[in-house]
């Protein structure tokens, strides 16, 4: 996989304030890259530099090999940008809105007719073709906005908070649209703070905090790196957690043993023990055999999956610049 979007020590300072600090990231071609971070972390500023709206103070960024500093017009040709607000014109119908932006991308009038129909079909707005833009619902506007970014068939989509402020249905529709676009071969770089989106659709994640990139990679990679061991949750039929503790204490591969404060709901007679364990699948299997062999009443034995929120909480420190 080749890198299609790259920043090299990208920095933006406003006087004393550093909005983006020495940020270097790589987005692979065809990836859905989730750019995650708290509000004010510098996500929008980074995107504005990538879309040639803002001049970087230092560092460089390349999109499809074109420098945002030296060849901004070439960058504009290969990106579709959707900001975190929806720019509306009064007195404009849906198709005119797309027609105008397609014309701004130098697409001829004859081709535009066809293109607009295709785009509206793609974002499921064909039935609203002749309606005024300001009568659309928020979710529809967002889909129209997405259609606009596709007018010139760009390779890379840079989307700032595409799902913010949408109701659950509209959010899922946008998410599915992004998957569809990814299947069509687009690289998608989007910022969000909805971690469920990241977990479900992103192939790559970058976490940014106070203008710095604190982690980057696939979600699985990040989980492995952050937690080199696995956590096993062992549910016991009775409250005899001490038996497990004594059985496991000091055993090879066991890093720590904790008795969970609360039993699973409605099962007050059960006890749950969490074990941090370093070992492969065979070792886990052996561990279970030992516990059962020792006569412990094991009801459930499962590995806890760390979700993206754990990862996020672990790599960020709650600093808001």
């Amino acid at each position: 996989m080749s890198v299609i979007l790259e920043t090299q020590s990208l920095t933006k300072r406003y006087g004393q304030f550093t909005a983006v600090n020495d940020l270097s990231l790589q987005v692979e071609q065809g990836a859905i890259y989730g750019f995650v971070g708290p509000n004010g972390a510098g996500k929008t500023t980074t995107m504005r530099m990538l879309t040639t709206l803002l001049r970087p103070t230092a560092g460089e960024a390349f999109v499809a090999g074109h420098s945002v500093r030296r060849a901004p017009q070439a960058v504009r040709r290969v990106i579709g940008y959707m900001p975190d607000f929806f720019g509306v014109y009064d007195d404009m119908t849906v198709w005119e809105y797309l027609d105008f932006f397609a014309a701004c991308y130098q697409i001829g009038e004859a081709q535009r007719q066809h293109l607009i129909n295709d785009l509206l079909e793609l974002v499921d707005l064909a039935h609203r073709r002749d309606d005024q833009v300001d009568t659309l619902s928020r979710g529809m506007k967002q889909r129209l906005c997405l259609a606009r970014t596709l007018a010139h068939d760009p390779q890379v989509l840079i989307l700032d908070e595409p799902a913010s402020g949408l109701d659950p249905r509209a959010r899922i529709e946008i998410r599915e649209l992004l998957m569809e676009l990814s299947r069509m071969g687009k690289t998608i770089f989007f910022s969000t703070h909805i971690l469920a989106d990241v977990a479900e659709i992103c192939t790559q994640v970058g976490i940014v905090e106070a203008g710095r990139l604190v982690a980057q990679g696939s979600l699985a990679e990040m989980q492995r790196r952050l937690r080199p061991h696995r956590t096993l949750a062992i549910t016991l039929l009775d409250r005899g957690a001490e038996g497990v503790q004594s059985a496991l204490f000091g055993r090879d591969g066991v890093l720590s043993v904790r008795v969970a404060d609360q039993a699973p709901q409605g099962q007050a007679e059960h006890a749950v023990v969490e074990v941090d364990f370093a070992g492969d699948d065979a070792a886990v299997s052996a561990l279970l055999r030992e516990l059962v062999g020792a006569g412990l009443p094991v009801l459930r034995f499962a590995e806890t999956m760390h979700d993206v929120e754990d990862v996020f909480m672990q790599v960020t420190k709650g600093i808001v610049s």
Binding site: L53, Q73, R77, Y81, P83, G87, V88, Y89, Y105
Partner: peptide, 13 residues
């Protein structure tokens, strides 16, 4: 004011 200015600036216009 309508924030369409940024949209225009990212096009080839």
């Amino acid at each position: 004011e309508r924030q369409t200015y940024d949209l225009l600036r990212t096009t080839l216009l």
